[in-house]
């Protein structure tokens, strides 16, 4: 990276490059890439926290177990609060979604790691899955009554066609904003850290300032990664609630 000395030697996007690690140098659809490696690592971390941690079944939880319980019951209560008691049927899916995103985000903050949630392919696929699942659930549960979500009965009749268009657009924009929010946040945070790191490399002794900035941004990112995982999940719950109770 350092052999070519140009005035702008910062490559904040390098960290998002997907490289095959096993099964040949050329990227195939089945290649084991750095992204796959970090998915595997997050899977191991999830198993550590949620299976090895609480294995002793303590009545009064230890450190590991209370973390696991906290996350578990946080998501559970959130679903009940937003989507009602029927939403609890979909708890395993939503919980899987949450810990997949949460661990991807948090592990992505480690130096030299790869943030798989910063890729629009991943978040877009997740958001599209949520969108399709919610739409299907809505039609299966309510039949054509699901369309009441777009035809707002409490509005004046003259306004309803206008609202219909607005509601339809906002409904179909959902997966886009849902996925870009997460990927964009992750990408932005990591790119900012990388840009500051580039400044630090170029400034010699004056690098203290960017290093302080990196520390501050890192602290902010710690907050952001958790909040983004939370927001992705809570929006999934809101959409699920729309599918289960389209009347309001």
């Amino acid at each position: 990276m350092s052999e070519e000395k140009t005035s702008f030697n910062i490559h904040p996007m390098d960290q998002f490059v997907i490289e095959p690690l096993l099964m040949g140098d050329k990227l195939q659809w089945y290649s084991f890439t750095n992204q796959t490696l970090w998915m595997l690592i997050s899977l191991v971390a999830i198993s550590l926290v949620f299976i090895v941690g609480p294995r002793k079944h303590q009545l009064i939880p230890g450190r590991f177990q209370s973390v696991a319980e906290l996350v578990y019951f946080f998501i559970r209560d959130m679903i009940v609060e937003i989507a009602g008691q029927e939403g609890l049927r979909y708890f395993p899916y939503i919980f899987t979604l949450f810990i997949f995103i949460l661990f991807g985000n948090v592990l992505g903050l480690l130096p030299y790691s790869f943030t798989y949630t910063s890729h629009i392919a991943i978040t877009g696929f997740l958001a599209l899955t949520v969108f399709l699942a919610v739409t299907i659930i809505g039609f299966v549960k309510n039949g054509l009554g699901f369309l009441k979500l777009f035809w707002i009965g409490s509005a004046p009749l003259a306004l309803r066609p206008v609202l219909l268009i607005i509601e339809l657009i906002s409904y179909f924009v959902r997966p886009i904003s849902h996925s870009i929010r997460l990927a964009g946040n992750m990408m932005a945070g990591h790119a900012v850290i990388k840009v500051f790191a580039g400044f630090a490399g170029a400034m010699g002794i004056g690098a203290i300032a960017p290093i302080f900035a990196i520390t501050a941004v890192y602290g902010l990112e710690m907050l952001v990664v958790v909040i983004q995982a939370y927001v992705f999940t809570i929006l999934t719950c809101v959409y699920l609630n729309d599918a289960l109770h389209p009347g309001h």
Binding site: I18, L27, Q28, W29, Y30, S31, T33, Q35, T36, M39, L40, L43, T96, F100, Y116, H119, A121, I122, F125, L126
Partner: peptide
């Protein structure tokens, strides 16, 4: 395709 394939597997 690679990303989506592996993500589906891991999910």
């Amino acid at each position: 395709p690679n990303q989506i394939f592996w993500m589906v597997v891991f999910c």
